[in-house]
Amino acid sequence: MPDHGFAHVTVARSRDRRFRPEIKPHVTGRRRRVSVVDGIRTTGPINTFIDCAGWLSFIDLVILGDALAKKFGISAAQLVRACRESTDYYSGRAAVAAEFVRDGVDSPMETRLRLLIVLAGLPEPVVNFRTYHEDGTWKRRFDLCYPGIKVIIEYDGRQHADSVEQWNADLKRREEFDDEGYRILVVTARGIFREPERTLERIRRLLISRGMIGVPPIDPAWREHFAA
C-alpha cells in the first residue's frame, strides 16, 4: 500500500485525544473489532479496508482486498457483505471495490492485470484455476485462466531467466502446456504500466483466435485507472 503520511489513532473519549505531528486522531463511540499486531491495538482487517477506501485509489483498494482475503482467510463474499452492512463513512466506496475482490489471488501485479482486463470490458479470467490428474490429485495452478478455450494469462515479474535451470524448467513447463492444448500469454510489468493498451489488444486477439464467442470491443473505461 502507498504510505498515507499519517498514523490514524482512534479513541473512545474526547479527553483521550492527542494532537501530534503525523498523527491524525479520531473519536468514536462505535464498537470496533480490534486486532493486536506487534503489541499494538489496531482496527480489524475489514474495518481497515473500509477506512482505507477514503484515500486509496480504486486499484490499490482492490489490491488490498485481495491481500486481506488471502492473509486473513476473509472470503470475497464476506468482504462485500460487511461493506454493504457497514454504516461507516467510506463503506459505499469500499463496497464498490469489494465487488472486484477475488479469493486466492497471490500478488498485487496479478490483481492489476486482472483489473486491466475487466475494466476494459473483456471477459474476466478465472482466478486460481487448478487442473488435476486422473486420480484426482492436484496437478497445476494457473493465476488467470480461460478454461473453456485453454488460455492462460500469466504475469512474469522477471526481466530475464534467473538461471539456466529456471530457463530449462520454464521451457519444459510450456512444452507440457502445448501438449495439453493450452496457449500462454505472458505479460510483464511493462505491459501493465507502459503498454496497457497493447496488452489488452494482445489478449483480445488471442481470445478471438481461440474461438471465444462474443468478445466485446475494448472499453476505454480502463484509461481512468491505468496510464495509456
Rank of each mutant, 00 (worst) to 15 (best):
R198F: 02
A7C: 14
L185A: 07
V215R: 13
S14K: 12
C145R: 12
D156N: 14
D106M: 08
C52L: 12
I59A: 06
G73N: 02
G214Y: 10
K70A: 15
T199G: 08
V187K: 01
R190W: 07
G157R: 05
E180H: 12
V151H: 11
I152M: 09
R102T: 07
I152F: 04
D38S: 11
K70V: 07
R174N: 14
I117Q: 05
K24V: 10
N47D: 10
R140S: 09
T28I: 05
G29P: 01
D16H: 08
S209H: 11
V80W: 01
T111D: 00
F226W: 01
G92S: 11
L200P: 00
V34F: 00
S35D: 08
G157N: 06
G211R: 01
R205K: 14
G136A: 03
K172E: 15
E176N: 14
R205N: 12
I74E: 04
L113P: 08
A76T: 02
E22Y: 11
G44P: 05
I46D: 00
D170R: 08
V151T: 11
I203P: 01
Y90L: 00
R13N: 15
W167P: 00
D103H: 01
R204D: 05
P25T: 09
T43H: 10
E154A: 10
D88R: 15
D38H: 10
D219A: 03
V62F: 04
T131M: 02
A7F: 11
K24C: 13
D88Q: 14
I218H: 08
E195W: 06
A67E: 14
H8N: 15
A82C: 02
Y146Q: 09
R198T: 05
G5C: 07
V187S: 06
P216W: 08
P216L: 10
R140L: 06
I184R: 10
Y182K: 13
D135T: 01
P21N: 08
T131W: 04
I203N: 02
F49W: 11
E154Y: 04
A7N: 15
I59H: 07
H26Y: 15
H133E: 06
F142R: 13
A161D: 12
V36T: 14
W55H: 09
H160N: 15
G5Y: 05
I192S: 04
A161R: 07
V101L: 08
D51R: 06
L185Y: 04
P21Y: 06
E175Q: 14
V34M: 00
F58L: 08
D162K: 11
E165F: 10
A12N: 12
R93T: 11
R210A: 09
G39A: 09
P21D: 11
R81M: 10
R114V: 03
A189W: 11
A7G: 13
T199M: 06
F177W: 12
S91L: 00
T137H: 09
Y182S: 14
P147Q: 10
V186A: 13
I50N: 02
R31I: 04
H225R: 11
V105R: 00
V187R: 02
L115V: 04
P217G: 14
S91W: 01
P45F: 01
P108E: 04
P108Y: 03
V164I: 13
S57H: 03
L115F: 04
L144A: 12
D135M: 02
T10V: 15
